[in-house]
Nucleic acid binder design. Structure first.
Lengths: 320, 320
DNA sequence: CTGAAAGCGCTTACAG
DNA sequence: CTGAAAGCGCTTACAG
């Protein structure tokens, strides 16, 4: 049955008839043991409860199931708290490879992954580890940030602020650096208090809004490092009777589903998370299925696009 | 190593020393083959991209990893489109059991699951199949609906509408039936056009809002079968310059993260999805680990609670 | 092209 | 309490 084309037609028919008759189902545990393949890969999320990852999972799962592979899921917290080692998934033959969506792994864990016997089959998606040499798939964070700042600039904003993601997060860092860089390119002023620290969450967006309200000299537009930040920011402003985009324009990054339905709907930078998942899965599968081939596509950077909605508008100079 | 307590201490030490020295890792494929257990369970979602399920997954995953089990994920669409059979996961020894979060499976698929050799290890969570005999875990849909209607009634609303979930969905049906029933109990009027068909999505909420706007005699409060519906409903009303709760009170069901941050924040019926996931996993594991024991807890119904926020208020009679 | 044998790495029962 | 043997159900190489 593994190689149906090398036997005669009559034998093939007899075999397939017998399969139907007896209801034979292959036993994957036996096959996995014999082939030394788990025929499954592990996807590691920072936090299973975060809906941001749903679409990426969908993309990964689609690709894997088309190749007959299963998708195992774990979250960083759990692996740590349960005392399991991440590298065990590879070493104990539970998974043939790993897609890691968490760039915030402990240095110690990263080290153990780097020297794992199956280190070649570890790939980062969305986030990545600065300094480590794992292949990765990510969005155009810099270009997306430039698009955001340019959009606000083209609306007439000259005082633009930024709410960052969590300190030490690679995405947050990349977006913040690109933000500062683009402001310089456009020769826009940047006061240090216009950069407000956050952490990608709704709650952090609320706190950032309070910081914005407390400023003497407020930016007329704010680029948030995630949509959730932006949504929380807008919500808190609204509670203090500030209107978006009338008093301040607000942008996010990600374009999650809710952004379109929020009031006001949110201008954002769209990442195609489904495609990101599919790309990650296909890159990893390529390595697993042809382990000897030298593969050159080490980092895939996927395009993002500006989605203009109601939360950004020309600055309302009289009010600011 | 499977039974460390039946050997002498000295032997035990020698074994564990050797394990450390050689870096021995158990091969799970071999263990799975020998024990005839996959040590993993499959979670089937209707749609991986739907963030509603994230917290349930987190709950399931926590419980499973505490028992040394892995979590496999698939979505109904994919299983169908890839031509795989759902029942194969059980039959080919990939999974020891299944938690199904989709009550909308084809009758044919349900039938194949019912006569599966491992049918005892299939459990429904959140949704369920009317007429089938699988164990299930669900929230108090009826009681939650009663709490919602009572809340609106106690605010003074006498004309209460409902936006339903998808036709044929068990949750939608349960909530709609309970809604009609509670209105009768409270002796409230119910016009047939006050029940608006939806499908749990943001987009359906928008369409339902248009239907509400088009009514001659509008309900002063609307109970939506999901938070996403309610959020879409509010968004669309806002685009037509209707204010919630001033022109109409709106409630949801689920209490998803965004509901707290929406403008206005959403009054809802809270389901503890994390706990639901943990309960489902624990019920299933009990069956898997003691297959001979007769287990009586066939259906677990978990409590829900009313969360009052800004989207509901006393009716504004002059405006309606 | 076909059939029988070996072996993947465990666990379990059994003999000593 | 300890050690050696059998076997889970496949796949792969090998002999016919």
């Amino acid at each position: 049955m593994s190689h149906p084309n090398i036997v005669s037609t009559s034998t093939k028919d007899r075999v397939f008839d017998a399969v139907k008759l007896t209801g034979y189902r292959i036993n994957r545990a036996a096959r996995n043991l014999r082939t030394q393949r788990a025929h499954s890969i592990l996807v590691l999320l920072p936090d299973l409860a975060n809906p941001f990852f749903s679409n990426i999972l969908e993309g990964i799962s689609r690709y894997l199931s088309s190749k007959g592979y299963s998708m195992l899921i774990a979250s960083t917290n759990q692996v740590h708290t349960s005392g399991e080692l991440l590298v065990d998934y590879l070493d104990d033959a539970r998974a043939d490879g790993m897609i890691i969506l968490d760039g915030g792994l402990d240095a110690e864990v990263v080290k153990s992954l780097e020297k794992a016997s199956k280190a070649k089959f570890i790939l980062f998606a969305c986030e990545w580890i600065e300094g480590a040499n794992f292949p990765s798939v990510r969005s155009e964070n810099e270009e997306g940030t430039r698009k955001a700042v340019k959009h606000l600039h083209s609306l007439g904003h000259r005082k633009v602020g930024h709410v960052t993601g969590p300190k030490n997060n690679v995405l947050a860092q990349a977006r913040k650096d690109a933000f500062i860089c683009e402001l310089k390119t456009l020769k826009l002023e940047l006061k240090s208090q216009w950069i407000i620290s956050g952490d990608f969450s709704l709650a952090a967006g609320c706190i950032a809004a309070q910081a914005w309200i407390a400023l003497d000299d407020r930016p007329t537009a704010v680029f948030c490092a995630s949509d959730q930040l932006a949504l929380g920011f807008i919500a808190e402003l609204s509670r203090h009777d500030y209107n978006v985009p009338y008093h301040v324009s607000v942008m996010g990054f990600d374009d999650i589903d809710f952004s379109e339905q929020y009031i006001p709907s949110l201008t954002s930078i769209r990442q195609d998370r489904l495609f990101l998942g599919e790309t990650a899965a296909s890159m990893l599968m390529q390595r697993i299925e042809s382990p000897d081939k030298d593969i050159h596509d080490h980092t895939a950077i996927l395009p993002v696009s500006l989605v203009i909605r109601e939360s950004t508008a020309p600055p309302n100079l009289e009010k600011c």
